[in-house]
Design a binder for these strands. Structure first.
Lengths: 248, 248
DNA sequence: ACAAAAGTGTTCCTCTTACACCCATGA
DNA sequence: TCATGGGTGTAAGAGGAACACTTTTGT
């Protein structure tokens, strides 16, 4: 079998956001019609990598284009390398559009976390992109469902081990918002009293003294994430739980 | 910036083994001299991907070549995509050797786990490869140190969450061997009584009734990994620990 | 008999879990 | 005053951590 000399590399980003109720992902339309391919078909934002560009740089570029934001939390997941993952009409169109002649596109999955707010929602809707409930998505083009599923699985794992949750929340948030986020991502119900006890005693979040306004019930206090406490905790936390002492 | 049309993709494998004392990784020599590059320089086994070959297939091929083994535990880690990660003499040689003309090689890291035994050790040494203590490695060619460090970090994380340890041990092993493996990979000392209690009560390993022979101390019993118990446990285990009930 | 590693139990304490009511606000 | 979600405490049980001696074998 000869050496593969003719592979293009792309990145595809699963951009997650949280609206207080459910986990959303940013989808765009294919945006071109070609011999049976509908321009309305939904996909993840992505791009081919450019010369002298690393993969994280390509992913950041995709995110800047699709959300207008810089400095987004970004994490690589898996690589999708099936030789026929892009083929047929789709491949023809890609070659024509980019003026290349390739048989194969290998793609690298990334997931990104953004703080949903009116600004970003209006930006993305002007772009024709949509924030869709992750649970409600049934079909995407090519293997994008698989890429999304992989991203979601990675997010779920990270969420229970690192404080990525705070990337999805506004700077100030209520305990309930944080709990709802955990529940939405993991699909698990959490006891509110136990959650408060645990999260507050951890010191990871600090009360601001500010409260909700104009709500027809007892207003909730706003908290902020305490990154320095987290950094300190990391040193102690990464251990097995059947350990009594350790040697460096 | 123009589209990157000319990228080669490779895989590099960190092949780990355990000799009962310390964690080893399989290193090979560069195996060519070229204008200042020494054939003795050490590297991870790797290869360019071939046409119609997926990345896991390429990694399996590398492993079959370097260890003579099939069906090895294999896991993808990160992608290394810095545009200049291969450059200069190294790049020149690669282009000449493969008869290609590329500016860039993106590589995908894999780690593999093998059961060290006399058979595989003699195979690899016939191939000129060496099993080296991971702690003692100071330099490898190109960015292979970085690839190895990433693989090791992944292994450490996996080891404390999934039963990959058993991929590194013979089918029958003693409790002490298992404990030593954990200690070698994580760099942590574990209390023997607590370890036994935990691992035995988990049901993950089952006694065979066979014992060590010709040892000048009380002979240890051999155990085997109980995969079915593990599979059942997985369903219950993947949960946060502040949860009381869950909804599917 | 001795050296060397295997194997074994208990206590203390922390953390998890389960569970129900009062509070503050706007309408 | 009522509807709504915010916020609070306690008791029982499980699991983690710390710790020292006896057993079995070969020499």
């Amino acid at each position: 079998m000869p050496l593969e000399k003719n592979t293009a590399i792309s990145v595809d980003c699963s951009v997650f956001g949280f609206d207080g109720k459910s986990l959303k992902v940013l989808l765009i339309r294919r945006n071109y019609s070609y011999d049976g391919l509908s321009a309305d078909d939904l996909k993840l934002p992505g791009a081919m990598i450019l010369e002298n560009e690393t993969l994280p740089e390509a992913a950041s570029r995709v995110l800047a284009e699709s959300t207008g934001l810089d400095n987004i939390y970004l994490k690589q997941t898996s690589i999708f390398s099936a030789p026929d993952r892009v083929s047929g009409k789709e491949m023809e169109w890609i070659c024509r559009f980019h003026g290349i002649n390739t048989k194969r596109v290998v793609t690298v999955g990334y997931y990104a976390l953004v703080k949903l707010n009116p600004g970003i929602v209006s930006y993305t809707s002007r772009k024709g992109a949509k924030w869709v409930d992750v649970d409600s998505i049934r079909t995407l083009i090519m293997d994008h469902m698989e890429i999304l599923a992989d991203a979601l699985a990675n997010l779920q794992r990270e969420m229970t081990h690192t404080p990525v949750a705070f990337e999805l929340l506004p700077r100030k948030f209520t305990v309930q918002e944080l709990q709802s986020l955990f529940e939405a991502v993991t699909g698990i119900c959490i006891d509110n009293r136990n959650f408060r006890k645990k999260i507050l005693s951890s010191g990871l979040i600090s009360p601001t003294g500010e409260y909700e306004k104009n709500v027809s019930h007892k207003p909730a206090q706003y908290y902020i994430f305490n990154r320095s406490v987290y950094k300190k905790a990391v040193k102690d936390k990464f251990r097995l739980n059947f350990i009594n002492n350790w040697t460096y």
